[in-house]
Design a protein around this nucleic acid. Sequence first.
RNA 1: GGAGCAGUAGCUCAGCAGGAUAGAGCAACGGUCUUCUAAACCGUAGGUCGAGAGUUCGAAUCUCUCCUGCUCCA
Length: 565
Amino acid sequence: MTLDIKSTIVNSLKSVLADELSAEQITKLLEVPKTSKLGDYAFPTFILAKSRHHAPQKIAAELAEQIDPTPYEKIAATGAYINFFLDKGEFAEAMLHEIISAGNHYGDDNVGQQGNVPIDMSSPNIAKPMSMGHLRSTVIGNSLANILTKIGYQPIKINYLGDWGTQFGKLIVGYHKWGSEEAIKADPIGNLLKYYVQFHEAAEEDPELNDEGRAWFKKLEDGDPEATHLWKWFRGLSLAEFQKIYDRLGITFDSFNGEAYYNDKMDPVVDELAAKGLLEKSQGAQIVNLTAENLTPALIKRTDGATLYITRDLAAAIDRYNKFHFVKSLYVVGSEQTEHFKQLKAVLKKMGDDWADDIIHVPFGLITKDGKKLSTRKGNVVLLDQVLDEAVGLAKEQISAKNPALANANQVAAQVGVGAVVFHDLKNDRMDSFDFSLGEVVRFEGETGPYVQYSNARAQSILRKAQQDVDLNGTLTLVDPAAWDTLKALADFPATILRAAREYEPSVIAKYALRLAKTFNKYYANSKILVVDDQLNARLALVQATSQVLTQALSLLGVQAPIEM
RNA sequence: GGAGCAGUAGCUCAGCAGGAUAGAGCAACGGUCUUCUAAACCGUAGGUCGAGAGUUCGAAUCUCUCCUGCUCCA
């Protein structure tokens, strides 16, 4: 649809420009004006000024005269631009028919051709609470999975849990010293975290504790039954706690293979590196030299023989490739790890794995609290669960105040509260860092998730009151100029999805949803939908199409769209 | 010391591959609920787009230098 219009305009211009510009050049120059008042498409004539030795304004006026206006509502020269106004009725009919008949498949594409795309996302640390910091990776990854599914990819959501490391030795020591089974059962993560913090405080006084911790971790590595049992127990309880949050967010995973899963898969990687002559000794450690790539060396094995993060990640990357033969492998991980992923790709490249090029780090900015990085150990945390509780509570209050008769108030409060938090995290460019502010995150007015949800609920309310379904064979030629911006926004949805996918940027969808909601709010606030005239069916079609697309857009973000609120 | 990211209205941010008077939201001020849910709509006010050079008919947008903040590496 959109493409057809563009090529129509290009042909119109081509007919009066002859050989001055190619169709490709014209297509490239064609732009969308800032406001609909100026037109729907515009062609700037600056480029013709030199060859024609005329002022661009004059050229625009002349050309506008020459073009056959039949396919358009009108053509107007404004300044140096030739502005094309589309035939509103015709456009409306085509768009509304397409959107409503496609239903939830409007905007679908198959550029992905069913290619597998593992997405490394969320990845919280066992025995530590999930903070606002983990939300970003979780919701960005989830949204990207939704977006990629829509355009024909097959995402595989992998929760690469932080379930291995020396901290488990410390936890075991802490548990033995201060813990009890009852306490752990009552509040698993809370108490495990307490032991961990306590351990660090105690170790300041008594450094021997660190040795004890190391010894227990060694036991764990060697498969000691007690250590293994405790580790499994801690891991299982933590996971169950995480699952509660994932349930609230409505997010599922295809794999929970965390760091521990790769314990026995690292030696082969180290062997392969050695066999390919890539390992070098440096100050006792084993490294891969990356000076040629302008990177710091990748530390594969420490002086004491312990493997490092990158070794595990290499094993994981290779494992994922062998399992999925991915077309892309995404890592939704904070921007502070950019260097790490460059190293990872560089080492894989050196190993001869061309698919390293398909590894894509999707970085995001840092959430801080009072300007400082969140740190569980320093107690500078914002617990995700608490933020969600807060948001849902506020949504509940809002409902009591504004719509006390609402039937399923608790469910809607959850949808709105959680939606507000998730949408807030997704609406800005991934790379933007922001300082956490509860008031900002749980806002329901202005450019927020609830604003979009509310717009949709209003649309649904109108449709309910209409007492009649949209007739696809009836009149769809909506000619009301007040509806024009909404109509054009609806037409932008497919291209918006592709752009969001291309840039791995859910905020593109969030901003689109806000724009659509805004233009729709403006429309229905000023125009009565439910009046009986020959345009009623067309107006209802617009309302339905808008609700459909808003719901879809929110769903791509992982946000629910209640039909009443 | 090296690298990455960022710097647009009082605050939080848009501005897609350079184009028509730089746009929203929040906060402020003023309007709109007997009429499809006021979580909304309308209006007023608010900006040397960090600084300087360059490319271009044209730069918030591209290039370079510098300044500031955050992050990472050593």
